[in-house]
């Protein structure tokens, strides 16, 4: 039983992707992207209440709500133990742990997608429909960018955590043989 027989795609993953260095860098990058998302949104909030903002559109709680939902989704998605998802082959899960994990994961992805859709909704209803010009339109664009960055951060964190499984698997194999 080798890895190559379980492989689905014709191109194998490059060797450096399995290193501990790559997954640590991935986790750091996920944190950095999440920080970037938060400060993008904070930038629009600070700018909206500064004297530079000539329009009467201001950032209120509504504008933060999509980001809060995206963050909640990210928290839920990355809290789920990944090994429990495919546990129909292993029986250590007991009754329906995989099912529960999938439900929780579904809630997480729904929250993340809901946050992104909320960002688009705020952008359309508050800025596009009312024909806001560019210096104020920046606040809406930053809202979209922030939600996209939260999604990107989630993807990077998910990939690096899955990398870890491969990494520990590669470590465990020579110990058995």
């Amino acid at each position: 039983m080798t890895m190559s027989e379980e492989r689905l795609f014709r191109f194998s993953k490059p060797e450096w992707l399995n290193s501990a260095w790559a997954r640590n860098a991935g986790v750091y990058a996920a944190g950095a992207f999440f920080s970037l998302a938060f400060y993008t949104l904070l930038d629009s909030a600070v700018w909206s209440h500064s004297p530079l903002n000539a329009s009467d559109i201001h950032i209120r709680f509504i504008d933060w709500l999509p980001f809060i939902f995206s963050t909640l989704g990210m928290l839920i998605i990355n809290s789920v133990e990944k090994a429990r998802l495919s546990s129909e082959s292993f029986s250590y899960g007991g009754s329906g742990v995989a099912w529960k994990a999938r439900v929780v994961l579904f809630l997480g992805f729904a929250s993340l997608a809901g946050g992104m859709a909320g960002g688009v909704t705020v952008f359309v209803l508050k800025y596009v429909v009312q024909n806001v010009g560019f210096p104020a339109l920046r606040m809406g664009v930053e809202n979209l960018v922030a939600n996209g960055l939260v999604g990107l951060s989630t993807v990077i964190l998910w990939i690096s955590q899955n990398m870890e499984d491969e990494y520990s698997y590669n470590l465990a194999l020579p110990a058995q043989g």
């Binding site: 986790v27 944190g31 950095a32 999440f34 920080s35 400060y39």
Partner: peptide, 10 residues
Amino acid sequence: RFCTGFLVMM
């Protein structure tokens, strides 16, 4: 690591 990445980018 996530928190450290957050603070550095902050």
